[in-house]
């Protein structure tokens, strides 16, 4: 203490400026680092955030259960949601346009023989009464001006609902791609889970 340092005004200004720059740069680096970390977090969050999407697994193959599945799917599409439907085992009947026997193994032919020809020929889950139930329900639904199941399926396609047939259950049931509707997708459990993980709603029907 006590030393007298003479410094010109311009030198003082330069020194102060230098100090200010140092401080500001250090702070700026901190801010930039936290911004980068926030950007990373936001990116991860938006990747994991559910989209406006509904995903349905259609396992059953009766008129009433399929009708419920398609009503929800069509409703969700009409509420602006992206909709994916995964058809497995008995649910594959909803996508069936015809039935073939040629080129199939005996077991596959037997399954083909026992399965309904398509959504127009499905049984009801209760009160089937050897095929009388579906006829009665079709009559009741027509009387009340309720859409038929084949119409609902056509509407779902028209609304751009993604329909995926499960290849594994197609293999078990001996169902070929030629027997199913055109313009559908094919996939496995990961295809379903990929969509379900991004969905707000996921249902098993």
């Amino acid at each position: 203490m006590g030393d007298n340092i003479t410094i010109s005004q311009s030198e003082l200004i330069a020194l102060v400026n230098q100090l200010v720059d140092q401080k500001v740069n250090a702070r700026l680096a901190d801010v930039e680092a936290s911004l980068k970390s926030i950007q990373g977090t936001v990116g991860t969050l938006s990747e994991n955030c559910p989209e406006d999407r509904a995903t349905l697994v259609v396992f059953s193959g009766e008129m009433d259960t399929l009708f419920a599945a398609f009503t929800i799917a069509v409703g969700a599409a009409s509420m602006g949601m992206e909709v994916s439907m995964f058809f497995t085992f008995w649910g594959l009947t909803a996508l069936r346009k015809d039935k073939t026997f040629s080129g199939k193994a005996v077991g596959e032919k037997m399954v083909a023989m026992m399965l309904p020809n398509g959504p127009h020929a499905v049984p009801t889950s209760r009160m089937n009464m050897a095929g009388m139930g579906p006829l009665f329900f079709k009559y009741l639904m027509a009387q009340r001006n309720i859409e038929s199941l084949p119409n609902m399926i056509a509407l779902a396609q028209e609304l751009g609902i993604k329909m995926v047939a499960c290849e594994m259950s197609m293999g078990v049931m001996g169902v070929t791609r030629a027997e199913l509707l055109d313009d559908i997708d094919y996939g496995g459990v990961a295809t379903y889970l990929g969509d379900a993980a991004k969905s707000k709603i996921t249902l098993f029907v």
């Binding site: 069509v74 009409s78 009340r144």
Partner: peptide, 14 residues
């Protein structure tokens, strides 16, 4: 009129 669920919302959406 005369339409049942889900058809009214399908039509409204369109």
């Amino acid at each position: 009129k005369g339409l049942n669920c889900p058809m009214p919302i399908v039509k409204i959406s369109r």
